[in-house]
């Protein structure tokens, strides 16, 4: 079996009496989409923050590309090649679409402490930015102000910015959130192809998307991973049905 790219080993995080992450061990293997699902308050966001580097676990480690990155911050993890997208679009809204993509390319290349040459005339950066925009189908909107993009287009742009980093792994926090059925379907198709570029750890509420995309699914309930397996295994798992799917059916 291929060596996992991204791995958490026994991550634990408590807030007072609440254990938000309880000895979570997960891994992300090359070429796969690994979906993380769980009811609200299960600790998905807390886990994502610890993987991305916004939050330090109380115990346990995070490994990325075979390296212990537990002590590294978000910036350092991004530089190693962890491409992240946010639940609520984190983009420079006053920038054009192209400027946001160039920012990503700039971060990937380095050399941000340059004070004289116009960045929007830098051939190498522009090329990389256009390439990424084309990849997500935003090339015709390059000159548009980001704030004027639709919700779905912003999600695409987030992915494009992540792509400019040529990441080794994607960490996506609810990319389908707020998308209509059509948009959700389109993004599902796109992510399906993206796993060839780099594996995706996908936190998602949209069950149709999860079951359509994921090679493996992990179910998080009250800070614990109660099951990991293929879509069929998860569907058939009685614990999952009781803890999660059942609750949702009843709701």
């Amino acid at each position: 079996m291929a060596e996992p790219l991204l791995q958490t080993r026994g991550i634990t995080k408590s807030f007072g009496a609440l254990t938000a992450s309880d000895a979570i061990s997960l891994d992300l293997r090359p070429g796969e989409i690994h979906a993380l699902i769980g009811p609200n308050g299960a600790g998905k966001s807390t886990l994502i923050k610890q993987i991305a580097g916004n939050m330090k676990p109380d115990s346990g480690t995070v490994h990325f590309l075979g390296q212990d990155v537990t002590a590294l911050d978000t910036v350092a993890r991004a530089r190693l090649g962890l491409g992240r997208t946010f639940q609520i679009s984190a983009l420079a809204m006053d920038f054009t679409v192209l400027q946001n993509a160039v920012l990503g390319a700039l971060g990937a290349r380095g050399g941000v402490m340059r004070f004289f040459r116009p960045v929007m005339k830098d051939r190498a950066l522009l090329e990389r930015a256009h390439e990424a925009l084309e990849c997500v189908g935003l090339q015709d909107h390059a000159a548009m102000r980001t704030a004027e993009l639709s919700h779905g287009q912003r999600r695409q742009l987030e992915v494009a910015v992540a792509l400019t980093l040529k990441p080794k792994a994607f960490l996506m926090d609810e990319p389908m959130a707020g998308l209509g059925a059509g948009g959700s379907k389109r993004l599902t198709g796109f992510l399906d192809g993206l796993r060839a570029e780099a594996p995706i750890l996908l936190v998602e509420h949209d069950m149709d998307a999860v079951f359509a995309l994921a090679d493996r699914i992990s179910v998080l309930v009250y800070g614990q991973v109660i099951a990991t397996g293929t879509a069929d295994e998860i569907r058939a798992n009685p614990d999952v049905r009781r803890a999660y799917l059942g609750e949702e059916d009843a709701a």
């Binding site: 920038f95 400027q99 946001n100 960045v119 980093l165």
Partner: peptide, 26 residues
């Protein structure tokens, strides 16, 4: 010149959204 340079782009991006800048490794 500063405003149009790489530094200016990153600085104005950090003003608008610090998460974005961190996520691209700056």
């Amino acid at each position: 010149r500063l405003a149009r340079a790489p530094f200016g782009l990153a600085l104005t991006a950090a003003r608008q959204n610090a998460d974005r800048v961190e996520t691209v490794g700056i």
